[in-house]
Nucleic acid binder design. Structure first.
Lengths: 297, 297
DNA sequence: CTGCCGTGACACCCCAAAGGTATCGAACAA
DNA sequence: TTGTTCGATACCTTTGGGGTGTCACGGCAG
């Protein structure tokens, strides 16, 4: 059974004339007659009343006509929707990102993608780097925005932005009043770092700065992610070392200050599975690439 | 585009394995691979993710899968319903009958048809003979139950029943008390006859009896149909001559009585267009034939 | 009444496309 | 490395859809 046969049937049912229907379908009349005959044989039912010179639909024909219309409409919809999703203009994209990315360029990137592909449904979630890695591997997400980049041969990587590190201090800290802060002077402070697991992680990047500056922190407080760390800072537990961009969002109890000394900086990187060539993903990577080029050379 | 291709696609989408899907479809694997490739080309979209050894549906594939399921279900429904209507087991049958038929065997006939074909929707209407003829010609109805039979080469006829004529008298008539009624004694009565148009009609059958009995009615009241005539009788306007079967339904103000004298009787006949071979019609004619044979030889 | 016209069905031919077999090539396991 | 699994490709055969020519039947005009 072919969709064509239904189209032929509909044409005859509407024209009630084999010759005209054939002309409309741009085929000759004999094959059309044959197709209709085959259809009637297939269903085992007479669809047209051929008595006299006038052709009429039988009741069965009317029933089939209605179904045929709906089937062909549905087929058309199937084509259109499938094409749209296949071209990346519709569908769903699951993006996860590290908590510290929600303040800087990532919202702008997502806004940019949404303006280009408004019909793609976005599923966003904020998790830590390790969870990003796991979720991307297990295909629970399509895009991971991580800091630092995830090292995995299976991943496609696109640098989104680099930034300096700055200090996040409790506002009642005596350090907050100092005009210039040297990292080497922080040896006796409590460092609030993240994530706790798995190691090595961003926490070790910060510990690396300490080592380079010639000390090990007096006290360490390890949390699971950026959000928890900054909360601890805000209640005065200690200081943290964070990406510059988070300072655009002011937060009660927290003061952001640059420091002098070793500053390896940090980069936000967009990842996807190499084997995930879904158009939604490829388009997002494309938008990321253009976005990164535009915003910092 | 072929329904087969959608079926193939669904099989692969469910099995996620070309070999198994091909086995299930009872074809070899290469043609299946080719059909899927053709489908992907046709839609212009990748439907499966063939990376590594594991096959997965793409988002577009999932969209198409849902549509394909519904299209195939709909096709199946189209087949079933069309078959049912084509076999006469479903659909619609438009039956019209003369008013005087609604009391006798016709209700039994219709009951019998309904018990055999409960899913056929019946559209019933009571009209006069002339209207029956017109409606059957113009295909507004499928079946006409007329009295007397309609003379037309285009019609198929099936005798349903013959019956005697009897008198319908107002209950306050002095005739109602007489033990035996002779038609010849009715010369001075008012005859309520029907239908008024077109002539000749059943009214002329009754006038024929009068003539045969040697008189012309003293007064004539012509109405359009049986229902109106019997109403006039019930309010005492005059008497009428009606088929015996209407007496099974008693009616206030009306007394039914047999008479002696010329009694041509009357027949109820089922008609349909000769060129209307719709199964619903043929089945009804069949039921009628069996019914007539059973009920009177 | 006859012959023409309109219309659908039938006969025959050709080619596109679907199915089959054999085989290849990549990926994974032993 | 080799063997195995699995989808893709190559090539052949067959099915079936489309085209042309023609017939058969009913309607209509001359």
């Amino acid at each position: 059974m072919d969709f064509r046969r239904l189209r032929y049937f509909l044409a005859v049912a509407e024209e009630l004339h084999f010759g005209r229907a054939a002309t409309r379908l741009e085929i000759a009349q004999p094959p059309l007659s044959r197709q209709i005959a085959t259809l009637e044989k297939e269903v085992g039912v007479q669809l047209f009343d051929r008595s006299r010179s006038q052709i009429r639909l039988t009741q069965a024909g009317m029933v089939l006509q209605e179904h045929a219309r709906q089937i062909l409409e549905r087929l058309d919809a199937a084509y259109r929707e499938t094409k749209a999703v296949g071209a990346g203009g519709a569908g769903r994209l699951r993006i996860a990102f590290v908590g510290s990315a929600s303040h800087g360029v990532l919202p702008l990137l997502i806004k940019s993608y949404r303006s280009s592909y408004p019909d793609v449904e976005l599923a966003l979630s904020a998790v830590n780097n390790a969870e990003l890695h796991r979720a991307l591997i297990s295909r629970e997400i399509d895009i991971a925005v991580a800091r630092p980049e995830l090292r995995d041969d299976e991943f496609r990587r696109e640098l989104l932005c680099r930034e300096k590190l700055i200090l996040a201090l409790p506002d009642n800290s005596r350090l907050a009043t100092q005009s210039e802060l040297r990292f080497a002077d922080l040896a006796n402070e409590t460092f609030v770092l993240y994530p706790r697991r798995p190691r090595p992680s961003y926490a070790d990047v910060v510990l690396g700065i300490c080592e380079k500056e010639g000390f090990a922190p007096a006290r360490l407080e390890l949390t699971q992610d950026f959000q928890s760390a900054i909360s601890l800072v805000s209640v005065g537990v200690g200081l943290s070392v964070v990406p510059e961009s988070v300072s655009v969002t002011q937060r009660p109890g927290v003061i952001y200050r640059p420091y002098s000394g070793h500053n390896p900086g940090t980069a936000l990187t967009v990842h996807s599975r190499l084997d995930n060539r879904a158009p939604q993903v490829m388009n997002f990577i494309d938008v990321t690439r253009r976005f990164a080029r535009k915003s910092h050379g």
